[in-house]
Computed example of a mutant assay.
Amino acid sequence: MNYFHFPLEDWTNDFVNNWLLPVMSGFFDQISEVLKTSIEGVANFLIAVPPELIALILIILAWKIAGKGTALFTLLGCLYLGSVSLWADAMQTVSIVIVSTIISVVIGVPVGILSATNRIVDKIVRPILDFMQTLPIFVYLIPSILLFGLGGVPAVIATFVFATPPAVRMTSLGIQQVPEEVVEASKAFGSTSKQLLFKVQLPLALPTIMAGVNQTIMLALSMAVVASMIGAPGLGSTVLTGISTVNVGLGLTGGLAIVVLAIILDRITQGLGNKS
Rank of each mutant, 00 (worst) to 15 (best):
D266A: 10
T241C: 00
L265H: 04
V239L: 13
L261N: 06
G234T: 04
V259W: 02
T241M: 11
A262H: 08
L240S: 12
L261Q: 07
L261C: 07
S244A: 12
V246I: 14
I258V: 06
T245L: 13
L250H: 01
G236Q: 05
L261R: 06
G242T: 03
R267W: 08
T241H: 10
L250R: 11
L256I: 14
L250Q: 15
L256W: 11
R267V: 01
I263N: 09
V246R: 15
L250N: 05
L250Y: 00
G236K: 10
I258A: 03
N247R: 05
V239Q: 01
G231T: 06
L235S: 08
G255N: 11
L240M: 15
G254H: 06
P233M: 07
V239A: 07
V259L: 14
T241R: 13
L240H: 01
G254I: 07
G255I: 04
V259T: 12
G231A: 14
G254K: 10
G249Y: 14
A262E: 12
V248G: 14
G251N: 11
G236M: 08
I264N: 04
I263E: 14
V259R: 02
D266V: 02
L250F: 01
G234W: 00
A232K: 08
S244Y: 07
A262L: 05
G255Y: 06
G242R: 05
A257Q: 08
T245G: 00
D266H: 06
T253Y: 08
L235W: 10
V246N: 14
I243S: 02
G242F: 00
G236R: 11
I264V: 12
L265W: 08
T241L: 14
G255L: 02
G251Q: 11
V239I: 11
T253G: 07
G254F: 04
L235P: 09
L261W: 00
V239W: 00
G231K: 12
V246Y: 15
I258C: 03
